[in-house]
Amino acid sequence: MLKNPSFADFTALRTYGNDDYSAMGWEDLQAYLNEETVIIVEQFEDEANILNALRWVARGLPVNYAIRKARADHSMYRYRSP
């Protein structure tokens, strides 16, 4: 893992297709995460960004990197809740 990943590092980080976490919703993801992680990631107002960050935590990213990843994705792709 990079010590100080850049914005470009986060936008380049991909799953290259769907993985087990890609289709998971809020209920499924909570089973993989502790209460502290859920509270930290809930700083996003948009549910799509919350789920994006939670999926990256479930995939193994530290919480602070998952938050940065979700912010980078939102900035690049403007994820919105359906």
Rank of each mutant, 00 (worst) to 15 (best):
E27N: 11
E27M: 09
E36K: 11
A70W: 05
M76F: 07
N34F: 04
A23Q: 11
V38E: 08
N64Y: 11
L33A: 09
W26M: 12
G60T: 05
M24L: 14
A12S: 14
W56K: 05
N64W: 08
A48C: 10
T37K: 02
L51D: 03
L29G: 00
P5I: 03
R55C: 03
M24P: 03
S75P: 00
L61R: 07
P5H: 05
Y79G: 05
A48S: 09
R14K: 15
I67W: 08
N4V: 09
V63C: 10
M76A: 13
L2G: 05
Y65P: 00
E47I: 06
K69C: 08
P62A: 10
V57F: 02
V41I: 15
V57E: 04
Y79Q: 03
L33V: 04
D28Y: 03
A12C: 05
V38G: 02
R78C: 07
T15Q: 11
F10S: 07
K69T: 06
Y65E: 13
D19A: 06
G17Y: 04
D46I: 12
E27R: 10
A12K: 13
N52H: 14
Y32G: 01
I39R: 14
P5W: 08
A31E: 09
L2D: 10
L29N: 04
E42Y: 06
L2R: 15
Y65F: 08
E36A: 13
D28Q: 15
R14V: 11
Y77G: 01
R78Y: 10
D28H: 02
